[in-house]
Design a protein around this nucleic acid. Sequence first.
DNA 1: TATGAATGAGCGTTCATTCAT
DNA 2: TATGAATGAACGCTCATTCAT
Lengths: 198, 198, 198, 198
Amino acid sequence: MARAVQKRTLETRARLIAAAEEVIAEAGYEAMRVEEVVQRAGVAKGTFFAHFRDKEALLERLIGTRGDAQLDRIEALPPPADIPAIIAALNPLIAEMTSERYVFDLILRYSGAASRAETGPIAQTFARTDEVLSQWLALGPFRKDVTPALLSSGVQAFLMHVTALHFCELYHEQTLQEMLTELLEAWLLPGGTGAKAG
Amino acid sequence: MARAVQKRTLETRARLIAAAEEVIAEAGYEAMRVEEVVQRAGVAKGTFFAHFRDKEALLERLIGTRGDAQLDRIEALPPPADIPAIIAALNPLIAEMTSERYVFDLILRYSGAASRAETGPIAQTFARTDEVLSQWLALGPFRKDVTPALLSSGVQAFLMHVTALHFCELYHEQTLQEMLTELLEAWLLPGGTGAKAG
Amino acid sequence: MARAVQKRTLETRARLIAAAEEVIAEAGYEAMRVEEVVQRAGVAKGTFFAHFRDKEALLERLIGTRGDAQLDRIEALPPPADIPAIIAALNPLIAEMTSERYVFDLILRYSGAASRAETGPIAQTFARTDEVLSQWLALGPFRKDVTPALLSSGVQAFLMHVTALHFCELYHEQTLQEMLTELLEAWLLPGGTGAKAG
Amino acid sequence: MARAVQKRTLETRARLIAAAEEVIAEAGYEAMRVEEVVQRAGVAKGTFFAHFRDKEALLERLIGTRGDAQLDRIEALPPPADIPAIIAALNPLIAEMTSERYVFDLILRYSGAASRAETGPIAQTFARTDEVLSQWLALGPFRKDVTPALLSSGVQAFLMHVTALHFCELYHEQTLQEMLTELLEAWLLPGGTGAKAG
DNA sequence: TATGAATGAGCGTTCATTCAT
DNA sequence: TATGAATGAACGCTCATTCAT
């Protein structure tokens, strides 16, 4: 009996999420209105708040889900053998994060993992990214004088750095790619090509 | 006469800034309300917007001023000879940035330099930091296989990274200091002690 | 200058009140919606709450104003010489209070004078009623063995008693008139016709 | 089997009532939420409404039960021989009614007997009070020029009047006792000491 | 009877920003 | 410059009641 009820609950939640995705696809995250979502989902406003603490909770979930999809894809890739491969793998994730200023702000707010009572989806995405990167860096032909965990941490720092610069009018897409490349080379292969030799 | 008017103007502006600082000292940046500030300054709401483009413009100015004070101090220091010295020099800046989550968000938003028409105070602080760091890194006993500009860029990325982690309950103050040390060592002195040899 | 501004304020307030009265005339007090009022007044919702603490504050004012109008009328009457005259004078006030269950509930809630920070309009109407009644009872051919204030107090008790019974399906209009007459006779002229003799 | 079912039903009802009393004891009538009650009773929300038409039906029952207890006590008393005795007898009833503003409002709403299809517990309490008072007033040394029913009606009006004033901060407990005494003396013994003579 | 997810209308609130004076 | 009333779009929330299972 409890299961039957839960099914209805899941359906409602799915409808809300689908409606929200629809709205976002049409007008972007920032333009999403709770009112609009419940109307499209054919659900009462109160129901919305029975499923999500607030509007941001839904957004967090939505963004987290997308991030997870990216990570699923990334995990399925063969460990990259060089820096261009890393960048190529991570680029869609960067694209996701820079799709909208509002999204980036949200990500920043929620990336602070357990700053909230429970670890939210976005924080989890960050944790997963860390794991994936660590493995890659351990397996690939990168410097071994420091732990993969530290390397991964640094890569993430660069990732966020470059992502933040996306919203700075001074930089062009290409410049940022170059900057990221340079940073990663200097970080992962100090001594340049000599790293391979060394 | 124009001078007299200007004097009054400057006084009003000073009163607004003083009032804002007062409010912030009591309740923090996030809790600052324009309403409260103008009341304490004894001026009308409209006057506020005659002096500052918007609320954030004041906040930017306030935060920028603090950052500048830090940089004045930092610039007066002798170029650090090792990583602990760098960290010691930068720590107060980190403390400033982590004083409040909201402040950090603002800083990140405005770190993207000219995301607004004119380069604001926060972006300028970043630019200055970049200059100082570049000089230090050029002068000090750090890796020379990449440009000081790139090194500086990376240091800033790590700085922000670690600062962000301050708002993540998982990390303790000490852990973060250690992490920053490790990151900087790996970044500025790849090959560890070998850097001294190189 | 302050006066000019105040004029605009008064106009806005007047527009809000007029709009509210319009809505109430059409659909009753209970059906009044803040949304509807601000729309008709051509005013923003925020403005409504800048003028009235909440919806009930406006309603209180509206009901109080009507009560005051009744009292203005009542005060202009010559002091009644007998009980039917008292009842005739008070009947429109009763009619006002029983026009809507919702109104009566509000009156009850706010009659408790200073139970709120400031004495509201409804409580003031009650106070004025007390004054008027006291004067009447002092002047008229009614019992003199107790103070007019006490007599007035009793009359008000009967008034509310009978008013409350209006919302009880058992009683018809006429029954209540009779009951009030009997109560007032027994209260104001104990000893029946003998009072005239006495 | 029907009996078994009925037994479970009664148990559920008892649990709901007990839970409600618990909540009320802790937070008062106004703060009682159906949600809270069903949680404590360990039943589903729907179950609540299978047992009580609506929330007020439960409240009415609860308040009515308390009133009945008072009346049981009052009925057991010997008919009072004077006004202080009447007041002493009724005082606990007043205390009950003034325990909470919200309770008084409810009582007033339901005092109007059959304003609902069926006469509820509160209305019944009023009816019983009326009977008791009528008998007392018929038996005691009070005015006989009007019917006991009318006298009783007036006493109830005064009772409610004084009770209402409890929620008006202007009046103190003692003042109200005195006012009630004066009102009852003037009502039940017009002519003052003459009543003793009569 | 029992369940509990869903309902739903509307209130109050927020507060940076504007604009007529 | 200075004034301050007015703006306005959502959000969050409430919580008794219903209804399909």
